[in-house]
Design a protein around this nucleic acid. Structure first.
Lengths: 335, 335
DNA sequence: CATTTTTGCTAAAAGGTTTTAATAGTGGTC
DNA sequence: GACCACTATTAAAACCTTTTAGCAAAAATG
């Protein structure tokens, strides 16, 4: 760690030019016809003194930072936290580091951060596109910056994305609820949101209902709603429609649903989207449509690096299957 | 965003030298006696064309990257995820970005990452020092790299840290359990770990017991233990000692404890360390010693930036109080 | 043996800033 | 009018790499 040693120091010590050393260190010895003898001598010396090139100088010259920008909606959400962990692991394995940020629902901050990360010349972006980010993502693409979206995508912007098969996840969950003859009236609790994952989950729910020729009951909650208001709304929704079962579109909504249960002592059969420690332990345990977090993370890094290495590469759309985990909440009524 | 504009472009357009512009942009106009007229002309033009200095070149020259390295033990742990979120917000507010990583219990990876972040010339480090990191942290300090530790500290290394008042948290939690006359035998479930937060929590537990002149029952679990084995151990610990109440040293252990409850249908009164969504919803709701995550995050960034701005600054040790949140699990026996 | 090709290596430019040291001009002092 | 101090600005060095373009010597070619 001590005092930084420079490539020119090595050149001086070894009596060779800086260029030669640079070539050797960048694996161009053969190509540049540096003799094996010299190559080895340099390599050994470099190892001995523990020289490491200055990343900043390197990046300045090459334009590559070996840093990826990770922008997630909310890192304190277990789904994103887990994915972030695996993204970091995958990137690390490929020699990339992560400049990270949690955007919340602050579009202004999100745009600013994308701009700032762009200014820092990150080599690529991994983004959960929250609403209002369409144009800035489009701008990135126009500037040929490698981007991969996840959790949801932007239909009008043709770029890489990795998402779960939300449609089939919701479809199978709803069908599972429908298979129980007692569940006559099945509701769907979602968010006011145009995002694709929400739309797909709703479509999956609808298709299952259509197959069984049942009526749909859909309640959307404001994204930033106070929790107690959301609780009241969910309670009302269930009561008024005498619902037998509910599919919750996100784990956060499902947790709010459970709080309704705790407060009003009433909740129908249910399935939640995204797994959570809580769901396994809850009495009864909550059935879920779980996403393959590790796979998603790996694909994200893979797709992004592919694009970085080959800017001409064609756009990839990857859809990862969901897993329906059936627990007690959908087989026996809650309380 | 389009084509990058350089400081030299501006110089040419305005017919002034690059130096002058650099001085003005870095707020040294007065000091360097640049006339107000020119200063304004430059500032306006810069704004008009939207020039932004190339961060890499800037960093290369100044040695400052405006990037902090954040190394947490496990980002998929809600406690760390929440803290990471607030650290990011605080840093962002001060114009710093975060290079992030989740270390797990992989000491080799952790050391390598610290080295890599150091090579990238991050301006400072925020670290949860997992075991085996003592020497590398000491090395950072020897190299005058600003560092602040959190969650726990390294006693033999004199550096900044921000931790919760684990001792008093555990002390008050234990005392709270002791105040209930039914709780004769109170146990403590912790990890095999020399880390300070664990030691302090145990000491707090001990002191409360001493005050009441009660026997201590302490069970330590291996950090990487399989969950089912840990469950069996906890079950045995409670059964064999006929415990009336248990204080769990981490939220993860407490969750394992709850799983014991679910499986064996038996668990005494309890208090957990660190809050979790799960605990509020559990039936009965779990009492906790909760940490002031937002305060900790803010202090971390504050202390680190202080050190970065003034390398001579004296070392800060900040201890943030914990909050005892009494819920049902410690007032009525579970089940 | 004169010419071309290949081998093995290097000087210098480029990447885009900040900062040091210097310069030309102006006004004041004795 | 010689000297000094101050004002307003700038040329060039520095930060540390990578890469382009090129050179001298050795080997190959006819």
């Amino acid at each position: 760690m001590s005092k930084r040693i420079l490539i020119s120091d090595i050149a001086k010590s070894l009596g060779v030019s800086v260029t030669t050393i640079s070539f050797i260190l960048n694996g161009k010895a053969k190509e540049k016809r540096i003799s094996d003898a010299l190559t080895n001598r340099v390599l050994e010396y470099v190892k001995k003194v523990g020289y490491k090139p200055n990343q900043l100088a390197q990046s300045l010259r090459t334009g590559q930072t070996k840093i990826l920008g990770l922008l997630v909606e909310d890192i304190s959400n277990l789904f994103f936290a887990n994915i972030a962990k695996h993204i970091e692991e995958s990137s690390y394995a490929s020699g990339y580091h992560l400049l990270y940020c949690s955007m919340g629902n602050d579009t202004v901050k999100a745009k600013e951060l994308i701009q700032l990360f762009y200014d820092r010349q990150v080599d690529g972006f991994i983004i959960t596109p929250t609403e209002g980010l369409e144009d800035v993502v489009a701008l990135l693409l126009k500037n040929n910056v490698p981007v991969v979206l996840f959790d949801r995508y932007i239909p009008q912007v043709e770029t890489n994305y990795v998402v779960s098969d939300n449609f089939n996840g919701a479809f199978r969950a709803t069908k599972h609820l429908l298979e129980n003859k007692d569940n006559r009236r099945i509701g769907f609790v979602s968010l006011y949101s145009d995002q694709t994952q929400m739309r797909d989950r709703m479509d999956g729910y609808m298709k299952a209902l259509d197959q069984y020729q049942r009526q749909a009951y859909i309640k959307k909650i404001q994204i930033d709603e106070q929790e107690d208001i959301a609780m009241a709304q969910i309670f009302e929704f269930i009561e008024d429609n005498k619902l037998d079962a509910v599919l919750f579109a996100t784990n956060y909504l499902a947790i709010t649903g459970l709080k309704v249960n705790k407060k009003y002592g009433k909740l129908p059969a249910m399935v939640a989207f995204d797994d959570h420690t809580l769901f396994k332990l809850h009495e009864p345990a909550i059935s879920v449509v779980s996403q393959r977090i590790e796979t998603i993370a790996e694909e994200l890094v893979k797709v992004l690096l592919r694009q970085i290495r080959n800017p001409q590469a064609d756009v990839k759309h990857i859809v990862v299957p969901c897993d329906l985990k059936i627990r007690d909440s959908s087989t026996a009524k809650i309380k």
